[in-house]
Amino acid sequence: MARRDITGVVDFAYLESYAAGDLEVVAEVLELFRQQAALWAPLIAPGQEGWPDAVHTIKGTARGIGAAALAQACAVAELEGEGRLAEVRDALDAALTDVAAYVHELMLRSLKSPPRAG
């Protein structure tokens, strides 16, 4: 299933495979990612005491949705320190851009599809 791809930093095929093709599960996981990102964003700024925990959490979640570049940026920040947080923020922004485009396409597709019989 082709998806709109803004930056290419999220491997949606990986996520779809992991969710056994259940796009409702994929959409739910991505919505949770977006909600959590709103919580993480203030913590991944220089001088924030909780940034190491936030970066570690983001790394695991990024791997789970197929955002390898974000996970890698987090791994580097864990090793090299808060001077690398700008790269984490940039990678998070890029992942969120792709997630927004993907979710938008799912919503458009649902408008075109007949409702499921339940």
Rank of each mutant, 00 (worst) to 15 (best):
M1F: 06
A2W: 06
R3N: 07
R3C: 02
R3Y: 06
R3W: 14
I6L: 13
T7D: 10
T7L: 07
G8H: 03
V9L: 09
V9M: 04
V10P: 03
V10T: 07
D11N: 13
D11Q: 02
F12L: 10
A13R: 10
Y14T: 08
Y14M: 12
Y14D: 08
L15W: 03
E16T: 12
E16Q: 11
E16N: 10
S17E: 11
Y18D: 12
Y18P: 00
A19C: 15
A19F: 11
A20E: 15
G21C: 09
G21R: 10
D22L: 10
D22W: 08
L23R: 07
E24L: 05
E28Q: 15
V29D: 02
L30I: 03
L32G: 13
F33Q: 10
R34V: 13
Q35G: 14
Q36N: 15
Q36A: 13
A37E: 05
A37R: 00
A37L: 04
A38P: 04
L39H: 08
L39R: 11
W40T: 02
W40A: 02
W40P: 00
A41Q: 12
L43A: 09
I44L: 01
A45L: 15
G47W: 03
G47L: 05
G47R: 04
Q48H: 13
Q48M: 08
Q48F: 02
E49H: 06
G50I: 01
P52K: 01
D53G: 13
D53Q: 14
D53W: 04
A54K: 01
H56R: 05
H56N: 02
T57G: 01
T57C: 00
I58N: 04
I58C: 03
I58E: 03
I58W: 03
K59H: 09
K59P: 07
G60A: 06
A62T: 07
I65E: 08
I65S: 09
I65G: 08
G66K: 09
G66F: 08
A68S: 14
L70H: 06
A71F: 09
Q72N: 15
Q72Y: 13
Q72S: 15
A73D: 02
A73N: 04
C74F: 05
C74N: 06
C74T: 07
A75F: 04
A77I: 01
L79W: 05
L79Q: 15
L79T: 13
E80K: 10
G81D: 07
G83S: 06
G83N: 07
R84A: 07
R84G: 00
E87P: 00
V88G: 01
R89S: 11
D90P: 02
A91T: 09
A91E: 04
L92F: 02
L92I: 05
D93L: 11
A94L: 12
A94K: 14
L96Y: 00
L96N: 11
T97Q: 11
T97K: 07
D98L: 07
A100G: 11
Y102G: 00
H104I: 02
H104N: 14
E105C: 01
L106C: 05
M107R: 12
L108P: 00
L108W: 00
L108I: 00
R109K: 04
S110K: 05
L111M: 14
L111F: 14
S113R: 14
R116E: 15
